[in-house]
């Protein structure tokens, strides 16, 4: 059985761990809207605030170049920081970058490594909770979009997506449709049809 639960509703009489769960007197309650799967005994948040996890890809904008570090705006509660020696050739204010999260430092800032500057194009903001749907299982969804539109796409788990080249408007429409229809069945096929019907025009 799968049930949608909202903040405050009981998930289980037992203690559970994971995102979107709070435990009180040994019982587990939802702190965000999510789905509880009683067979797998797991709770999957449907809406959430992104928090950086080690190894994740993020997309952001350099907003301050300091002596030894660069600050990165990740359009989220978390700021990013890149240590200058990890940025070969240097970075400038306003550069759009893609990078990997190494972890959080003591002050709650996301330490980023392997920055890559993304030139040209534009960014769009997608709810971080919908990013897994945009990627699709085994990245099938996003691959399908970039194959059809010939658009280069970088997806940040922080909810910032970079697009450049090709039919960028069609790629944008497809990603925004995934965001608004993330709960619909057979979405990969539906987006495929949308892309094909646009290609013919």
């Amino acid at each position: 059985m799968r049930t949608i639960l909202v903040p405050g509703e009981l998930i289980s009489d037992k203690t559970m761990h994971g995102e979107g769960i709070i435990v009180e007197n040994g019982k587990s309650y939802a702190s965000v809207i999510g789905i509880y799967d009683s067979e797998r005994q797991g709770f999957i948040p449907l809406e959430s605030i992104w928090s950086p996890q080690q190894g994740e890809n993020v997309v952001g904008v350099i907003d301050e170049a300091k002596l030894n570090t660069y600050n990165v705006n990740l359009h989220s509660p978390y700021k990013g920081v890149i240590i200058s020696k990890y940025a070969e050739g240097g970075l400038s204010n306003g550069d759009i970058i893609e990078a990997t999260v190494r972890g959080l430092d003591k002050t709650g800032v996301a330490v980023l490594v392997r920055p890559r500057v993304l030139r040209g194009g534009k960014l769009i903001s997608i709810k971080p909770s919908k990013i897994p749907r945009v990627l699709g299982r085994g990245n099938t969804m996003i691959k399908q979009i970039s194959d059809y539109t010939k658009t280069s796409i970088s997806i940040g788990m922080n909810g910032v997506v970079w697009l450049n080249g090709g039919d960028i408007d069609l790629a944008t429409d497809a990603i925004e449709r995934i965001q608004s229809e993330a709960h619909i069945t057979g979405l990969t096929e539906k987006i495929g049809e949308m892309l094909k019907s646009n290609e013919k025009r």
Binding site: V6, P7, G8, G20, I22, Y29, S31, V32, I33, P45, E47, S48, I49, K127, S129
Partner: peptide
């Protein structure tokens, strides 16, 4: 607030 995904102990 609940629609934003900001965690709450209860609504």
């Amino acid at each position: 607030l609940a629609s934003s995904g900001i965690p709450m102990r209860d609504m």
